[in-house]
Every structure is written in C-alpha cells, then in structure tokens.
Design a binder for these strands. Structure first.
Lengths: 331, 331
DNA sequence: AACCTTTGTGCAAACGTTTGCTGTGGAAAA
DNA sequence: TTTTCCACAGCAAACGTTTGCACAAAGGTT
C-alpha cells in the first residue's frame, strides 16, 4: 500500500477519521482503549501524518526562513549552526535563502517566505538594502521578523546586533593603551551600517585620545585580497604601527600581506580584529580580537524570534550583545 | 482584507474558482480577455497562491532537504552556496538539517524529510553512519537521494565525490617529485570513508615509490588543535621534511604550529593539503594544495539530484570529480 | 421518574487549490 | 436547416487533516 492516511486507519478500525485524528493527538475526548488500538495500528503501518495536509488545515508551515546576504566562511557557519539548533529544538524547520547581496534576490526571497507561509523570518540584510520597503508584504501580514548582524541603523524592528561603536572603541582603546598612536583601520563595504558605525567608533576613539583623524589611515576593502593591499599601503606608505581590522576576512588579508614584509608581529606591528574567534587561531602569534560570536548572535536572534512567534514579546526589542576582548599575541 | 484567495477573486469577477485558477496558470481553455481581467485584479490585490494548498493538492512540497553532518567553516559555505543557487534556479527551496555528527539526529532528520514530503534529499553522512538503514523510509518511498562528499564506500546509490585515492596520490607524488622521502600525513576521523581512502592513497603512493610505510608518520587528528600537536610531533620528533594534510582544518592547525618553530616554509619544511582553496590564501607563502572545490561538489550533487527528480536519469550514478594541483609557495 | 451531566463517537465543513467532466452558445461544415 | 465542432466556463470532487457541533448511551442528581 501507499502511505497510509488517517482515513485508511479509520476504515480498518471501523472508526471515523475524526476519532482517529483525536486519538493520535491524544485528545481527552477519546477513550484510552480506542487510543491504544489506533496507536498500535498506526505504528504497525508506519503511519506518519501528511504534513502538507496538516499545514493547510492549520494554516501554518512549521517553517522558519533564514534570509542571508551571502554565504561567508567567516561568520555564517556558526550563525547557521546556532539558528538551526534553536529552531529545531522548538519543532520548526529551517529554510535558507541567500540574496547574493542583491536587492532583487532579497525581494524575491521575501516573496518566497510569504508564499510558503513561513512562521517567522530571520534576516541579515544585503548591502543593497537601504530600507525595508521590500519587507512590507511580510510585515503587513504580521509575520514575525527578526533582523540580526546586518540591520538598518534607525529601524525599530526586532533585532540582535552588537554595539559596533563600543566594540570598536574597545579594540582601538586596547591599541592606544599599548602605546600606539598611528593606527590604521581596515573597513568593509561602506554601504553596510556595521561599517559606518565601526568607522565612527574608530574616529571617535582616536579623537577622544587627542589624535586627529587622518582619513588616509581608514581604508575600505571588499574582500581579503583588497584587505592585503590596503594593509600593505598602511604599513609601508603610511607607516602605521598598528592595524585594526573590522572583520575576519580583512584581518586574514592583512596578516597574509604582512607576512611578506619583514615586520614582526607584534613587536614591529600590532594587529587587532573583530572576529568570531576561529581565524585568529590560524596564526602564530594568534590574533588579539574582540570576540563577536556568530553562535551567540544566531542563538539570541532565534530565541527572540521564537518569543515573538509565541507572543511572549509584545513590543519590538533591539538587543545589543556584549563582546569581550580576547588578548593573544598580536598586540 | 486578509490575504485574498482564488475564491475571492472568483467572487469579485463573477467567475468560478476553477476558471480563475486556469487563468492564472495560463491554461489554453480560458479566453485571453478573461485572463487579462483575472491577472489585473490579481496584481491589484497582490494575490499570491497559497503554497500550502497547492502543495496538498499537487502532493509535493517544492522542498529539497540538505542533510549535513555538521556546520564547518571550511567546506560548507561554498557547498551550501552552490546547492542553494542550483536548487533555487529550478524553483525549489532548500531546507537544511544538521546532524551534529550523531546517528540519532541523522535518523530524526530523515523522518523530517519524509514528513515534510521533500522531493529530494542531498546527504553528507555523519561519521557515525556505517550503513543506510536509517534512510530506508526514504528510499522505500523512492524519494530521490544523492549522497556527496561523505558517502558509504561500497554503496550503489547516486553520489558525487572526488577520487580520494587519486587526489592523495597527486599530492604525495608532488612531494616525492620535489625530492621528499620522509613525509608525514595528517588524517581526520578514521570512521569516515574519505579518511580511510586517503590514507590508503597515501600508503600506496609511498610504497610505489619504494618507501616503506611508517605508521608513526600517519597521524589522526580530529580538529585543527590536534592537527597542530600532530604536526609538531611529526616535524620535531620524527623529522619529516614534508607534510600532507587531508583537509583545510588540519592544514591550518599544522601551519599554525609550524610558525612556532623556526622552520622556514618551504625551504626547511614543505606542506601540501587537500583544500577548497580559501584557507591556503591565508598564509605566506600560500599553501600548495589539491583543489577540492566545495562549490563544484555542491553544484554537481544538486544537478544530479534534479536529474533524478526529473527522471532524466534512470540508473544510480556515481560521479567522481577531478581535482587539480594548485602549486603555490609552500612546497 | 424526569432531568442533567458526562463520556465517547460521528458528521460535515473547512483549509485553498487543481482538474476531469459536463454543458452552453455560436461558428463552421454538411 | 441540421449537424458537428470548438472555445470557453462552471460543477464538483479531491488532496489529508482538524474541529465545532450534534448526538447517543450511560451514569448521577433532584
């Protein structure tokens, strides 16, 4: 026989489908004896409910979508892992949609969420997104949405981020404390709010220390290769004594470049990064960093989303996670 | 109004739901004029079909599941990206389930696939899986399944892998060609078939070159930290002149450790790895490797699965991808 | 003895589509 | 004119569940 349905069970047991359904769901209205008969036959036939029918009837899908701007080896794996674990532990399943950093794919992904009737959405925005217009269809329908990591700066939706100003301050302060006065900064895509925020933190921390901001010492790089070039320029042309990298990717590029120079880390050049904590272990000396845990971000975002779905949380909540300095050999 | 349904459209247009459905699906039985009216109203109201209902009616979910043993920064991101792109381009959506390398979670994930009525499954087996018994429910129902990367050695299901013997031979041959005779090997979890195969390749290549296999020179390490320890032992205690690492993770561990020694790469110590190609760029000199593209593996696996779903392929097919030597500075 | 409550079950509708079949009006063919 | 055919639209069933309601039998309360 094909996959047995509830109706099949009902026919075989001389019961009504509704009774079988209630028995399987342990409804109090049905007698223990009937429940036993039903469950035994169900087990025997290997019955499992047709989730498609359940979904339609219950008008939900049991699905949570993760919208991510791109697949990135430095941040995503731990975020994915945390989210998958949290979602799964609560009986949902995770569907992943990537946007390739384009607004059009992101918009399309939002439509998919709507069509699939996902019950919640976790979003790390693509660089092109400068507003949330393309999320209107979801937000209008009151589909719970939690933004994380890459968010809009002045937005009042639920979100989980780190305090970019603060962590950059921590990093730069650490360099200042070690006596560095000429500090170069490597920054990512300026379209991203995390980039802008971190740059502000960088400037302000220097200003507060009485060091005038030199625009030449803050460079933008889109990937590790560009990070390498910028790092070389900062070190060789602008003679910085310390480098700040706002991400793992840029840090890796920088260290790779610096290994070509004769400069010893940390004696001749200090380096600090904002990092998930894995890449800093690749080197010797290990790279001092502000630990920005992707796992933690993912976990908190998922928990927040689940709270919103449950209705535990009524008002939008913006959560800012704390980060800690992990002092290793590079500074 | 809530989300409009096909029935709503029908009522507003004084049509039958079936006609509206056909109009939306561009069925030849409905007049161009009616199609126009329907489509206009649909656009106006922002109608999108309720996928839950479509799924139930059509008895499919549009979902493809990716079962992965764990989230790993070295291999997964590019695999995920390739699979997501391929799947999405063909109108399916991707749900991701991780097994935490346990058989129990993997079994559970198989059940989820069945319940959700996924239309195809891509699997990278967890280390604990020594047979496919737990896939019986899927295979019995003729759900298309393609295994990739981590597969069972003697299995006749569809799969996409690399030729482990061959790529290890390439790597070791390269070291031999450079004059190395005392070569250490770093290997991963011995429960995995890729580990066993690569170890065999390692031994045989050495044997063929007239070098008796020394078991002390082939070490198992589960992660990069253990890789570091093993690398140090091989270099300092066993005085190898070259290292082979069967994965990025072990390579990274090894290089990190070697940077603590005074040994110059490649003059005093050569190193080669099997790698996705990213991590070798982190270092200077860059690490020579056999390029095992996760993107390519994912892409081929997804394409194969789609072919099986379409019925284009009748017999199980085991695809073995070729890999190329990327010679950089480390050898 | 009449009434109410409880316990267990069945009936039927609903979730929103898709699709085989039936039917109608009009044009083309005989 | 009659027959045939086609283009178009509607009817109703189906996908497999869940759930409000009705109802019968049994037990308990006045």
């Amino acid at each position: 026989m094909n996959r047995p349905t509830i109706t099949d069970l009902a026919r075989m047991l001389q019961l009504n489908a509704s009774t079988v359904s209630r028995a399987l769901n342990d409804h109090p209205d049905v007698s223990p004896e009937t429940k036993k008969r039903v469950n035994e036959l169900a087990r025997e036939l290997g019955y499992t409910p047709n989730q498609l029918a359940v979904n339609l009837r219950k008008r939900h899908s049991g699905l949570i979508a993760l919208l991510v701007s791109e697949m990135n080896m430095f941040f995503n794996p731990s975020v994915f892992r945390a989210i998958e674990e949290e979602i799964h532990a609560n009986g949902y399943n995770l569907i992943i949609l990537q946007a390739n950093n384009t607004l059009s794919r992101e918009t399309q992904n939002v439509q998919i969420c709507r069509q699939l009737a996902v019950e919640g959405v976790l979003v790390s925005l693509s660089a092109e997104a400068q507003n949330l217009d393309h999320f209107a269809t979801l937000l209008d329908q009151k589909v719970p949405v939690v933004f994380f990591d890459r968010v809009l700066p002045q937005d009042h939706s639920c979100s989980v981020t780190v305090d970019d100003l603060e962590i950059t301050r921590q990093a730069v302060d650490h360099l200042l404390k070690k006596g560095h006065r000429r500090i170069g900064g490597l920054f990512g895509d300026p379209k991203l709010s995390i980039t802008r925020e971190r740059l502000i933190g960088f400037r302000e921390t220097l200003s507060n220390a009485g060091i005038p901001f030199d625009p030449q010492l803050a460079m933008y790089a889109q990937n590790s290769e560009e990070g390498s070039h910028c790092a070389l320029e900062l070190v060789e042309k602008h003679q910085v004594s310390a480098l700040f990298a706002m991400s793992d990717e840029l840090m890796v590029g920088a260290v790779q470049a610096l290994e070509t120079t004769k400069k010893k880390i940390p004696e001749e050049l200090a380096i600090i990064a904002i990092s998930d904590g894995f890449a800093p272990e690749f080197y010797n000396p290990k790279i001092t960093h502000i630990r920005h845990s992707g796992y933690q971000v993912g976990q908190h975002a998922a928990q927040l989303l689940l709270d919103v779905i449950r209705g535990t949380i009524k008002k939008p909540l913006q959560e800012k996670l704390a980060c800690q300095l992990v002092e290793l050999g590079s500074v």
